[in-house]
Nucleic acid binder design. Structure first.
Lengths: 110, 110
DNA sequence: CTTTATAATCGCAATATTACGATTAATAAA
DNA sequence: TTTATTAATCGTAATATTGCGATTATAAAG
């Protein structure tokens, strides 16, 4: 990719992009939906639900965890994953600020 | 990437992911912000504003256009880009449905 | 017709992502 | 202690993304 030029952009632009990237794969969208839907957020259940290999799911979980949208707690040999409600709210407001607060302006020129 | 397994996911999950992907680079976020901010949405102005090479900006514009968030109209040798208000609204509601309507549920298990 | 201005496209290099089998690490159960 | 169970990590293949220089296509201007 050449070098990604994040230094050319504002903190906020980079944050919006990073959050959007976390949602930019259907498997991660599905994982998040599943975590909202069910209480049994054990990794193995997610693997069954989504239908990708365990290694692949683990990688997606790692990404979601690294940006803070989910958190995991160890329970014996299992790991229980959950939405991180606080960070989810924060993401919600950052993305909303970007995609929602613009719409009042009217400057269609084409 | 192996093969991307979009057939394993719902229409809606793929749509959310595709829209998020369009926002998943700070240059595209910056372009969209700029198009909202100014009326002079000529390609050359965007190139100057963002500070990446013309070929690179053109590629980002193409991506934004292909998912429908912006549209361009030819004006002599120039091309004038604008937010596609209708599709923007649609994206707004699809992403909002995903990131906002979940928050009422409480099922923290870790 | 020739020149100029503008933006799209091509071709390439560097890097990132997605996916998975195999292995490893950690804990529980026997 | 040995043996499952579970999830993380490693290594690798296939593919996508990002970025840019060079070229091309198009239309305006001279």
């Amino acid at each position: 990719m050449g070098i990604s030029k994040i230094e050319k952009f504002t903190e906020e632009q980079n944050k919006v992009a990073a959050l959007a990237k976390a949602l930019a794969h259907p498997a991660r969208v599905a994982i998040l939906e599943y975590l909202f839907k069910t209480k049994s957020c054990v990794c193995g259940d997610i693997v069954e639900e989504i239908g990708l290999a365990q290694a692949t799911i683990s990688q997606h979980l790692k990404e979601l965890k690294s940006i803070g949208l989910i958190k995991g707690s160890i329970d014996g040999t299992r790991v229980c994953y959950c939405i991180d409600e606080n960070n989810w709210e924060q993401m919600n407001s950052i993305l909303n600020k970007f995609i929602s607060t613009k719409k009042t302006q009217k400057n269609q020129c084409c």
